[in-house]
Design a protein around this nucleic acid. Structure first.
Lengths: 337, 337
DNA sequence: ATGAAAGCGCTAACAT
DNA sequence: ATGTTAGCGCTTTCAT
């Protein structure tokens, strides 16, 4: 049972009183200002330490307006895609001495909205992966400076990084088609579907299928939960409907890896019986057997670019003045195709 | 070239002036208080939106002392161990409506110290993975309430979660010895070595080696950078010195996976020619070939326990009054042994 | 080298 | 339903 002592906060005045100096002198001591007697400083610092004094960040922030806090909104820390993006965000933030507050949404509508409300109150600017247009609009409505990770097809008045899936997926699927694949299925992201968010990966898939006259229709698109287990389960369902599938294009690497595992477990040879094409290029994807062919995205760079745009907003630029950045996926040919 | 307009902040007074009401009425409107005419509220809200007004979190925090910010200090977002811990931390923080600020140290002494200085100014309490005793002591010195992730052997006056490697490693190495392995090497973490941090994994390894009369000495311990590539490189070096090694115990799964890849690439059969035992149980480790035998740690729980201890500190408990938590690794037998 | 006064932007408590 | 008065804890500016 934790004791809930309401231990009143120790303030700079307490320290001043205890050391018999004025508040300002204490302030000088703890802020390493020059105009102060070295001995006085020592005495004050010592007393402050003993008393457990810690300056209030709020009081400080109020007067010196120099601390910038960035909100980073991601869907799921457990999907390696986000830690990789986060690495870039942290790096860029560190350079600027910005604080980074992280929020997880699970891509659920309710949580995305709740997180937007939260960040609106707590941060100066934010970089966000948001699937629900409603959540994005809410942020804009609250005058929250926001930069989108994966802005493709989203609210055009909000700056963001565009991942050029169009070119990438065209190249990736072209590769499968060149290899003679016709019965190519897609494992899509069910969260994106249920959020009714723009989905270039799916659109390009359908467009190419039609252009090349592939014998596939929407029944060849199976929604998957965004995880290895989700990909594995989706592949089971797909094989029920289309046991003759020869290649699978997955929404991302996690889903592709799960699907490939199902295939292997079922005794299919990869890539001979069924090939797999992932998307996003997790470092994990070269560790599985066979290593996954994937559309690699430079995720740290994605994060850095977003922070750079955020910096423009902080500097006073209007959202429409901040040009979108673009990241282009790169086809990494490996053993799964 | 971003425009650096110094656009003065819009305050509640600006909104009040623009709408011809008092500051307090604006406050009521934006905080959804009851005692206000619905029409007035609408008018104010509309004006605030148009003006792009956003309440200052500092001013607010100063007066309503109800926002808690937790600093989460990790070594490396790219090591899946930390995202998994982070998942637990975020979950526990969300329940309490705490903000979580993340800092990456790379386990470098300089950065650990810099991060401690930073968090001391910016957060109310922190949960940290710190290798350098100096950094921990600095936090204590600054009266920073802190909880350690992996506190084993660290400053006993600081609360933390203890991972019971002693029992775990005993069981894991016991398993290898039972299988008849004698020439068991260890791939240690070079960052921990250079920080001169306590290392129960290594100690137990040496103790068991001596107790069971294994034909190994310190030359059988090879330091590895904390990554798959690091593990791979360390294994190369190990094989130079001890080509007759039959089992490898790695500091963690990332290193084990890299080492195992080197073995496979060299044509060794795993586990017949060389077995691999990891430590920490990343979800990744069951995706590699062969799946890795490992000492699984419930990392989300580790994070949650730490936050619970942090909550006690926030509630006013003295560090020495907060009992350590313990997480016990569990041996997961898989294909690599 | 130190102190006094002013004020950062907001909300709580008390008027009206 | 709205306005007024006091701070929250700190740093800045200006005295001394």
């Amino acid at each position: 049972m934790p004791t809930t002592r309401k231990t009143r906060r120790i303030t700079i005045d307490d320290v001043a009183r205890a050391t018999g100096v004025s508040r300002q002198t204490v302030s000088r001591a703890i802020n390493n200002k020059t105009e102060i007697d070295p001995e006085t400083r020592q005495r004050i610092l010592e007393a402050a330490r003993l008393m457990g004094y810690r300056p209030s960040r709020f009081a400080r922030g109020l007067v010196r307006q120099d601390v910038t806090t960035l909100g980073l909104v991601i869907a799921d820390v457990l999907n390696p895609f986000f830690p990789e993006v986060t690495a870039g965000v942290l790096k860029a933030a560190e350079r600027r001495e910005w604080q980074v507050v992280v929020y997880n949404t699970g891509s659920q509508r309710r949580k995305e909205l709740a997180v937007v409300d939260m960040i609106a109150e707590q941060v100066d600017v934010c970089v966000a992966f948001l699937l629900h247009a409603e959540a994005i609009n809410r942020a804009v409505d609250m005058s929250m400076p926001i930069v989108l990770l994966d802005k493709d097809g989203m609210n055009p008045s909000v700056p963001g990084v565009r991942i050029d899936f169009d070119a990438g997926v065209r190249e990736g699927l072209g590769h499968l088609i060149d290899r003679g694949h016709r019965r190519i299925a897609m494992l899509d992201d069910e969260a994106r579907i249920s959020a009714a968010a723009p989905n270039p990966r799916r659109e390009v898939y359908l467009e190419l299928a039609s252009r090349h006259g592939l014998p596939v229709d929407e029944s060849w698109i199976e929604p998957a939960a965004n995880s290895v287990a989700g990909g594995a389960a989706a592949m089971e369902r797909l094989l029920e409907v289309h046991p003759d599938v020869t290649a699978v294009f997955a929404y991302n690497d996690l889903i592709a890896i799960g699907a490939q595992r199902t295939a292997v477990r079922r005794g299919l040879r990869v890539p001979d019986d069924c090939a797999f094409l992932g998307c996003d290029g997790l470092s994990l994807s070269e560790l599985v057997e066979p290593p996954l062919t994937t559309l690699h995205i430079d995720k740290p760079r994605l994060g850095e670019l977003a922070v750079e745009q955020a910096a423009q907003l902080v500097a006073g630029a209007e959202p429409h003045e901040v040009p979108d950045s673009v990241v282009r996926p790169e086809l990494l040919l490996r053993g799964s195709t």
